[in-house]
Amino acid sequence: MLKPFIPDRTIRSRPSDAVIRAVVASARNVTDARGIGAERTATTLYPGQQGVIDIITKGTVTPTTSSADLTRQAITDLLINAGGATSGLAQRALSLQFDGTQSILIPTLAASGDHATFVAEAGTIPIRQLAIDGALITPFKLACAFLLTRELIEGSPINAEQVIRALINRSIALGWDTAVLSADAATALRPAGVLNGIAALPATAGGGQVAAVTDLAALAAAVGPVAGSQLAFVCSLSSAIKIAAYVPSLAFPVLVSAAVDDDTVIAIAVGAFATAANPEISVDVSREAVVHAEDTTPLAIGTAGNPNAIAAPARSLWQTDTLGIRLTMRLSWALCASGAVAWTENITW
Results as ranks from 00 to 15, higher is better:
T348W: 00
K141H: 10
T187D: 02
F140D: 05
L174Y: 14
I137E: 09
R40A: 14
I347H: 12
Q49S: 13
S282Q: 11
V24N: 04
N169A: 10
D263C: 03
A192W: 03
R190L: 01
S229R: 11
G51E: 08
R12K: 15
A212C: 15
T320L: 13
P313I: 01
D284M: 12
R40T: 15
V213K: 15
W333F: 02
T138Y: 03
P191L: 06
G84I: 10
I11R: 15
I55S: 09
A82S: 14
R92G: 05
A179V: 09
L323I: 07
Q230T: 10
A218C: 02
R287T: 11
I347A: 03
A143C: 08
P248C: 07
A251P: 10
G100R: 04
D133V: 03
Y246S: 08
S66K: 08
T76E: 12
W349I: 03
A33E: 09
S332E: 10
R128T: 12
L189I: 07
E121C: 01
A205G: 04
S16Q: 13
R190Q: 06
V24M: 06
I53S: 15
E39T: 11
Q162C: 06
P307W: 13
F118M: 10
A42E: 01
L2R: 14
T275M: 12
Q162P: 08
I158W: 06
T64F: 10
T31Y: 04
N278P: 06
D321W: 08
A222G: 01
R170A: 15
L45C: 01
T117H: 00
A274W: 04
D32I: 02
L255M: 14
G305I: 09
P157C: 05
P253F: 05
I6E: 01
S26I: 04
S182R: 01
T57K: 15
P191E: 05
D54Y: 08
V210Q: 12
S338Y: 04
V52R: 00
V254Y: 02
A166M: 10
L152R: 00
I243E: 07
D177N: 05
L78C: 09
A217L: 11
L219I: 00
A277F: 08
P15L: 11
N308G: 14
M1H: 12
A342W: 00
A277I: 09
D99F: 00
Y246G: 02
S66N: 10
A269D: 06
Q49V: 09
S112K: 05
L147K: 13
L231V: 01
V19E: 12
T178W: 02
L201Y: 01
S112L: 04
Y46A: 06
A116W: 07
H115N: 14
P225L: 00
A272R: 07
R190H: 07
E39P: 00
A82W: 02
A276W: 03
A68F: 00
T71V: 15
R9I: 14
L189D: 13
D77R: 04
C144D: 09
L2G: 03
L130V: 10
V234G: 03
I137G: 08
E151C: 07
P126S: 03
L109Y: 09
P107W: 00
G197M: 01
V61R: 14
T296I: 12
Y246P: 09
A304Y: 11
L78G: 07
D184F: 05
G123E: 04
A289L: 10
L147F: 08
